[in-house]
Amino acid sequence: MQRYLIRRVIALVPLVIGVTLISFLLMHFAPGDPTAIYIDPTVGDTAEMREIVRERLGLDQPLPVQYARWFGRAIQGDLGFSFVSHRPVIQEIVHRIPNTLMLVGAAVLMALFLGLTVGVYSALNQYRTSDYIVTVLAFIGVSIPNFWLGLMMILLFSGTLGWLPSVGMRDIMAPPGTVNAVVDTLRHMVMPATVLSVFHMASWARYQRSAMLEVIRQDYVRTARAKGLSERVVIYRHALRNAAIPVITLLGMSVATIMSGSFIVEQVFAGPGMGRLGVNAIFSRDYPVVMGVTLMSSILVLAGNFTADIMYAVVDPRIRYD
């Protein structure tokens, strides 16, 4: 296991290089120039100023040199300074990342818990009305675009009903000491986390349903029933464990889509996470921030996949990594 872990971690290195190199090249070949934001076009000689700025930002160097420089600093933990805010990129990301992790974490937990429960329930009630309802709801859940769902929820729960706040992660208007921070955060998190989880909740429910249906017909389940075990034990100990394996594969693969979904959800709900930092940076061609966000996101996604692989071994003892 230990050797496997070490091998996996080493294998991450070329992956991270590949991902950052591709986004570096894409960014530099896209039209648009970061020096434009530095210059007030109504004052003076823009051509000369642009050259000065290019030099100051290191953009006058050949691309391979620029990438090598960036990478060399990045492995030492130095992601440079934002072209726009002039703050260290690492500081910007560290400031934002807890919000993204909280949103993604809450969404994954919701999707896992509700998706799997509903999937199992649906399988055990196959061809009954409740199963049909779940199937249709899951189909809708998979099809709804999350920005639209977000706006609809804002209009209903914040606008019409006035139950929940629609922007940000906390109440910044209340005088200090008058709000409970945990309750306040939860109130702000409910809608964005739900929106982010709906797609995966629905798709996992569908997978869990079919996985469960398959497992439930296996001989060992029949044997368990024949032994006279209670239905609870048969379902939860024997069937569910085996039905969970394909879903874990999905979980690992979904980390990337959940991360990218958080970019959109943060935009709609004005969530101060890494996604919005990245989106703004792309529009202003803030290369160091784009690179920093790409690096962090790919590390998070790879970590997600890695966790899923480890969970395999936890759920299915037959799987061993040697």
């Binding site: 706006l151 804002i154 209009l155 914040s158 606008g159 006035g162 706040p165 629609s166 922007v167 940000g168 910044i172 208007m173 935009q267 709609v268 709900f269 004005a270 101060p272 919005r276």
Partner: peptide
């Protein structure tokens, strides 16, 4: 005086109507 950053205009309209801004 607080300057609150909200990119989306639909969310902004609701935030105005509900007193968040």
């Amino acid at each position: 005086a607080i300057f609150r950053i909200i990119p989306d205009t639909d969310a902004t309209r609701v935030a105005l109507e509900t007193g968040q801004i």
